[in-house]
Design a protein around this nucleic acid. Structure first.
Lengths: 355, 355
DNA sequence: ACAAGTCTTGAGAACGCTCACAATATGCGC
DNA sequence: GCGCATATTGTGAGCGTTCTCAAGACTTGT
């Protein structure tokens, strides 16, 4: 006889236990109407033979594929990856997703999709046709892409939009970007800062807007102006350098910066150092993301921790458990927190204070 | 009529193009014997209808599943992830793998498996039965786990072992750990260092041994002793702290350390700083991995860059292209390089030199 | 003890595709 | 123009599972 390469099928189990295929299938799927005695017998056969149902066959006949597809932005991911900037976002997503999926007998697959519009439909369409996933997790900036959400809705595939505060279509999950920015700014105000700048993310990410909102709101609550204190970057290091320089040039009295990504904060730290400013003595710095990097800089950075894993985990759970329910278009919020490290300190006595 | 939720099948294409299913199948799979005229007609139908074959169905009937499974160590990955240490290894692997897979029409799936022996067979067996992958990529420490390689061989699934210098079974791919350690040590010797310590990785990783070999060899070539200069860690930060302290306590004349992971190097940097030693003036530091973190420490660390993405990419390519060939048990080497940053400098004039 | 219901089990079709093979068309040498 | 080899197309079965539906076994109320 040949190698034992043929795998154990449901038929083998059925024969071994002396029951029909259907009964085995019911036992495997926790079907309701099987006598305890038979169920145990089948279970024993399954264990002995080491039977595990074939995902492909399950997909073929059943209505579920047991696959959740996670969509990431190809351009940004690849750029980060090529330049060895770290792709912590993908990591967090992958692990949070995998763990929650496997808890429910699902698998997660990661797909990189171009933001560029003519690719979106083709690439996403192809992935969906090939995989026929039971749910899709969208990450920014795809989360609010009409083309994508329309495509998914048309194909009747449940989906979750990470990082979106807009209700429907699909499940929206936000990490409270406005609240987080508000928190960061408020804390800085509490520390005595009056001139607090923001390096925002790119406009096509709606969370960039929300962060700006939160920051403005905090300043407004204390009667502080924000004009001239806003610069936009693209989350990358270089853009952070440019933005920080512009901010510092324009505002000699600047004492604090909130950066919308760790990379941009790293850049700000470097620019400050180049200009002979000490962080946090002369300049306080708060970043967004809290990737592993910021714990090891000098000084370690105070950062808004974005609970990506948990958010994706919640998204996956919703998709698996309530995927097909008409979900009422709820917005789920997983709160971000401020991790204070050593890049923030009380504001230096200002020139006007001294006067 | 209901929503357009039913997907386009090969049958739809066949009808649209007025040919048989088989002909469409041949066109899709690049079959050799189809007249150009018909092929174009079928292609047109495929494009118009947006047909993409179902992975599940392909797996069911054909001999291939178009899935490559990447196995990672669950314990270490989860520990790194939970403590937000960064899981750069997974990242690099995932992206290198995904890209190469998609180039060949394959997909990559990531699976976390416990090292603990009774889990290994069950978990890996289950993953294989469910997914029936066309190839498996093993990462350390699974790369040399007999239980795993035996299981894969028995089921006749091609596999690649990343980070292994041992030929067969399966394809072995190494990043030249002995050579890399030799390179690091040699460079330090060139800089005038005589007392060069090594913080090794855990023994169950065979690459730990190879790195020790390379380091010893370099020292030996210059008549330098290594006794008392070796400590083992577990790749994690805390173990790096312990190891560095032990090394420094035992060897007051130590001027350089090679750490087998970035985390341990980070710890060494911290310990040195605590003891009032300046890096690189008093102590030179070389780390392994070159994760994004080490570019932003103060000083940025000189590191051995492990080309994980490229190695996994090569592994995937081998599996897809030559998976079933009796590969002759070759060992493929993808060379690591030394990235010099600011944590290495000429050795300080030693006490004996001064005497 | 009998009809009417419920619980349990099984049989057969179907999912979308590729395989092996059969049938037909085309080309070539003479 | 005939016969053979070769290129092209079509047919039917089967992959491993779940679905639908029907049949048999057991309850229950009267």
């Amino acid at each position: 006889m040949a190698r034992g390469r043929k795998s154990v099928t449901i038929r083998d189990v059925a024969e071994d236990a002396g029951v029909s295929l259907q009964t085995v299938s019911r036992v495997v799927n926790g079907g309701p109407n099987v006598r305890a005695q038979l169920r145990d017998k089948v279970r024993a056969s399954i264990d002995r033979l080491g039977y595990v149902p074939s995902l492909a066959a399950q997909r073929m006949s059943g209505s579920r594929s047991y696959i959740i597809l996670a969509i990431n932005d190809r351009e940004r991911t690849l750029a980060d990856w090529r330049e060895r900037r770290g792709t912590d976002w993908v990591d967090q997503m992958l692990l949070g997703g995998i763990l929650t999926c496997s808890k429910h007998g699902y698998r997660m697959m990661v797909e990189l999709i171009d933001t560029h519009s003519d690719h979106v439909e083709r690439e996403l369409g192809a992935a969906i046709s090939a995989l026929q996933p039971d749910g899709v997790v969208l990450t920014p900036p795809h989360s609010e892409n009409r083309l994508i959400t329309a495509l998914l809705a048309e194909r009747d595939i449940p989906f979750a939009r990470i990082g979106s505060m807009e209700p429907g279509p699909g499940i929206a999950l936000t990490m409270g970007d406005d609240g987080a920015a508000h928190l960061a700014a408020s804390r800085l105000i509490e520390l005595g800062h009056r001139r607090i700048a923001m390096i925002a993310g790119p406009a096509q990410y709606s969370l960039s807007g929300w962060r700006i909102e939160g920051w403005k709101r905090a300043l407004g609550e204390h009667g502080l102006p924000w004009e001239g204190l806003l610069e936009a970057g693209d989350f990358g290091y270089e853009s952070g350098t440019r933005a920080t320089r512009a901010l510092l040039d324009r505002n000699p009295d600047l004492t604090a910066i909130i950066a919308s990504s760790d990379q941009m904060a790293l850049a700000a730290l470097e620019v400050a150092r180049d200009r002979g400013m000490s962080v946090p003595r002369d300049l306080s710095l708060v970043s967004f993301d809290n990737t592993p990097i910021v714990r090891f800089t000098q000084p370690p950075l105070t950062a808004i921790d974005q609970p990506i894993s948990e958010t994706v985990s919640r998204a996956v759970e919703q998709l698996i458990l309530h995927g097909r329910d008409e979900g009422g278009d709820a917005v789920i919020e997983v709160a971000a927190t401020l991790i204070e490290r050593s890049s923030t300190a009380p504001a230096p006595p200002s020139i006007s204070d001294a006067a």
